[in-house]
Computed example of a mutant assay.
Amino acid sequence: MFADIAFLLYVGHLIADYPLQTDHQAGNKALPGMAGWRANLSHAVTHVAVCATLLVLGAAALGWSLPTLPALAALLWIGASHAFIDRRWPVTAWMRLARQESWAANGGAAHVDQTAHIAALVVAALCLSA
């Protein structure tokens, strides 16, 4: 069940992060103040909605019985962790701490960002499949 849930959450992540993320969200989600938070949270809500939809479809198609409260907690975790990571400063801070400034300057931040998102999805999948 873990692999099925993790795969659905990963596909949900890809759908929400690429075809459903607007230019406005991508360009403004890390800005300071309310404008940045509005763009960031609307993007995070998209992640929650897509992942929730895929979990419901997966449960129906595969005969799962996901407990409601853990499923809601997992979706809250997905939204909150995604919003946190997408503020960009956590990735920048990590790359500075890990002495990856050169890699960050050459496109590495996008890879660290996606790795952090996938790690958060794995936590959600582990909690749902336990």
Score class of each variant (00 low, 15 high):
residue 105 A to S: 07
residue 111 H to K: 13
residue 82 H to V: 00
residue 111 H to Y: 09
residue 111 H to Q: 12
residue 91 V to R: 02
residue 61 A to F: 05
residue 97 L to P: 07
residue 101 E to K: 09
residue 120 A to H: 05
residue 75 L to N: 01
residue 81 S to Q: 02
residue 71 A to M: 11
residue 61 A to C: 10
residue 104 A to K: 10
residue 99 R to A: 13
residue 68 T to L: 15
residue 55 L to K: 01
residue 101 E to V: 02
residue 56 V to K: 06
residue 68 T to R: 11
residue 58 G to F: 06
residue 123 V to Q: 06
residue 110 A to W: 11
residue 91 V to C: 03
residue 111 H to S: 15
residue 114 Q to C: 02
residue 58 G to I: 01
residue 89 W to M: 10
residue 92 T to Y: 15
residue 73 A to G: 08
residue 56 V to G: 10
residue 101 E to T: 02
residue 79 G to N: 06
residue 115 T to W: 05
residue 102 S to A: 15
residue 73 A to P: 03
residue 68 T to C: 13
residue 62 L to W: 14
residue 123 V to G: 06
residue 73 A to L: 11
residue 57 L to N: 12
residue 63 G to C: 11
residue 56 V to W: 01
residue 68 T to F: 14
residue 64 W to S: 01
residue 83 A to R: 05
residue 100 Q to H: 10
residue 110 A to F: 12
residue 122 V to I: 13
residue 117 H to M: 00
residue 66 L to Y: 10
residue 59 A to I: 04
residue 87 R to Y: 05
residue 116 A to N: 05
residue 65 S to K: 15
residue 83 A to F: 15
residue 84 F to G: 00
residue 113 D to P: 00
residue 89 W to F: 11
residue 115 T to N: 07
residue 55 L to P: 04
residue 55 L to A: 09
residue 99 R to G: 14
residue 97 L to V: 12
residue 87 R to H: 07
residue 79 G to L: 03
residue 111 H to A: 10
residue 60 A to D: 14
residue 120 A to P: 05
residue 61 A to S: 14
residue 71 A to Q: 03
residue 103 W to A: 04
residue 81 S to P: 05
residue 98 A to F: 08
residue 82 H to D: 00
residue 69 L to C: 10
residue 67 P to I: 00
residue 68 T to H: 12
residue 116 A to E: 07
residue 86 D to N: 07
residue 106 N to F: 08
residue 69 L to W: 13
residue 72 L to V: 10
residue 95 M to Q: 05
residue 77 W to R: 02
residue 96 R to W: 10
residue 58 G to V: 03
residue 59 A to E: 04
residue 100 Q to F: 14
residue 124 A to Y: 02
residue 80 A to C: 09
residue 94 W to L: 12
residue 83 A to Y: 14
residue 69 L to G: 09
residue 115 T to M: 07
residue 110 A to Q: 10
residue 105 A to T: 08
residue 90 P to C: 07
residue 107 G to E: 02
residue 104 A to T: 07
residue 73 A to S: 08
residue 127 C to T: 14
residue 108 G to W: 15
residue 72 L to D: 06
residue 55 L to G: 09
residue 116 A to H: 02
residue 70 P to I: 00
residue 127 C to E: 13
residue 125 A to Q: 00
residue 117 H to K: 01
residue 62 L to H: 11
residue 71 A to L: 07
residue 107 G to H: 06
residue 109 A to L: 11
residue 68 T to N: 06
residue 119 A to F: 08
residue 56 V to C: 07
residue 64 W to D: 00
residue 88 R to A: 09
residue 90 P to I: 04
residue 73 A to D: 04
residue 70 P to L: 00
residue 122 V to E: 00
residue 79 G to R: 08
residue 72 L to Q: 04
residue 69 L to V: 12
residue 102 S to V: 15
residue 125 A to Y: 02
residue 104 A to R: 13
residue 92 T to K: 10
residue 112 V to S: 02
residue 107 G to P: 01
residue 90 P to W: 00
